[in-house]
Design a protein around this nucleic acid. Structure first.
Length: 422
RNA sequence: GGGGGAAUGUCCCGAGCGGCAAAGGGGGCGGACUGUAAAUCCGCUGGCUACGCCUUCGCAGGUUCGAGUCCUGCUUCCCCCA
């Protein structure tokens, strides 16, 4: 996909070598700029959910690479653009969020960036801005006169985000149609306010980004560049980070460090090298060694991946705890307090609780019927013993080592039941 | 404006003589095999106070012992004519 030119700047060399590059708008010019001084670049993040997920992680890592290479990262929170909704890659209009929801989401999302970037006032310190600051201030006619004149509908209709909607004869509302203008104006504003010369993003953002590049070059005659990352898929073709349990969230309150670690640990063999390059800071030569491991040996590489990726997000301590909990659970068959757990009152246990109820409470099955089927299929274990009868009452007699009851659905999902209270 | 078609299991695609909890895929989950991988094979894939009960086929009515299936109206989408 990429022309694979040789770059002189550390930044682009790294991006190229680690697999972040899908498209670059003016490669030579950007390379020179990056080699010559501090490049300031931004990535925009929607505020459609209360947490980012692994799908956003490539972008976050991209900003990290920028900072590591001596650039200045700008995190743009899409407080304003989220009010409009990006039609890219969606075949239906999405529900509009209220301003309050958006603000709450931004608050919740913010914290994650501190783990990956250094914020501050220095020349290469990261900054965070919210495009609501300028977008919500425009008057309609003012906006049209200042920016609308630079966009032709003829050209807007050629963008994929618009074209696919029209081709599928799905409605594209006027508000969505405006999204690309707003994103272009964002880039222009950041160029003026922060000297931002580069916008990065996923490959689906290429059209949106190029609009901004063109706008800046036309209106201000200033340099502007675009870099997009490839869509990260697993080797078997699935979009990364979608599991039945839901998205792989970055916020700890939506996905525990243990589960996050497990997500990486369960990477397919064929993806280990790619993920190590994208999602860890390990040097490329170390990755090459890990990637070359064969057979069961590659499990070691997966553990390194899980450790490093989890350490970046949740800290080294949490990563080690997750790794240790996993090691004991999967390699020793023992339990440790760091496994996911639920509490049950001793009184309830004395009366006996049907296994199906417990399994649902533990999140191992979505319904009692499902728990029943799971048990019948041999997928439900109590203290490592298959239990085909989900009706069976779990009582104090089932308390195992550590004074807890170990429930498992399948080989990978383990939940400890801790007994509390009278 | 006129004519013709479509909407199915709350993940998707899709079959469905008036007896239907509804064929078949995909996906997902579980089992076996492995290495917490992939591939392969097998099972499961509406809920519940469970030999029964309840809720499901765009929406609202109707015919019928009985409706996803027939009738009427409505909504949305597609195709053809103007």
């Amino acid at each position: 996909m990429s022309p694979a030119p040789t770059f002189t700047s550390a930044f682009l060399q790294t991006l190229q070598a680690r697999g972040y590059v899908h498209q670059i708008s003016h490669p030579e010019e950007l390379d020179q700029a990056a080699a010559a001084g501090v490049v300031s670049a931004y990535i925009g993040f929607d505020a459609t959910a209360s947490s980012l997920h692994v799908g956003n992680l490539v972008s976050v890592m991209l900003l990290r690479r920028l900072q590591q290479a001596g650039g200045k990262p700008i995190v743009l929170m899409g407080g304003g653009t989220t009010k409009v909704g990006d039609p890219s890659g969606k075949d239906a209009t999405r529900q509009l969020l209220t301003a309050d929801q958006i603000d709450a989401n931004i608050d919740s999302i913010k914290q994650v960036f501190g783990k990956f970037l250094t914020f501050g006032d220095g020349p290469t310190d990261a900054v965070m801005v919210n495009n609501d600051a300028w977008l919500s201030r425009f008057g309609y006619i003012e906006f049209l006169r200042d920016y609308g004149v630079h966009f032709t509908v003829n050209r807007m209709l050629t963008f994929d985000s618009v074209k696919t909607r029209l081709e599928r004869e799905q409605p594209l509302t006027f508000i969505e149609f405006n999204y690309m203008l707003m994103q272009a104006v964002d880039f222009l504003e950041l160029s003026r306010r922060h000297g931002c010369a580069l916008q990065m993003g996923g490959s689906d953002q290429w059209g949106n980004i190029i609009n901004g590049v063109d706008l800046i070059r036309r209106v201000d005659q200033r340099p502007a560049f675009a870099v997009t990352t490839p869509l990260i898929t697993t080797a078997s073709g699935a979009k990364m980070g979608k599991t039945a349990a839901g998205a792989v969230w970055l916020n700890a309150d939506r996905l525990s460090p243990y589960d996050y670690w497990q997500f990486w640990r369960n990477t397919e063999d064929a993806d280990v090298g790619k993920f190590l390059r994208l999602f860890t800071d390990l040097p490329l030569d170390e990755i090459a060694v890990l990637e070359a491991l064969e057979g069961a040996g590659i499990n070691e590489a997966k553990k390194v991946l899980a450790n490093e990726a989890t350490a970046l997000l949740h800290g080294r301590d949490e990563a080690e705890r997750a790794a240790e909990a996993a090691r004991r659970a999967f390699e020793d068959g023992a339990v440790s307090g760091d496994l996911p757990s639920i509490d049950i009152p001793a009184a309830a246990l004395a009366a006996g609780v049907p296994l199906a109820v417990l399994a649902v409470d533990a999140g191992l099955a979505p319904s009692r019927s499902e728990a029943r089927r799971l048990a019948q299929g041999g997928g439900l274990r109590v203290n490592d013993k298959q239990e085909p009868d989900a009706q069976r009452l779990i009582t104090a007699a089932d308390i195992g080592e550590g004074g807890m009851i170990k429930l498992a659905a399948g080989k990978k999902k383990i939940v400890l039941v801790k007994i509390v209270g009278p």
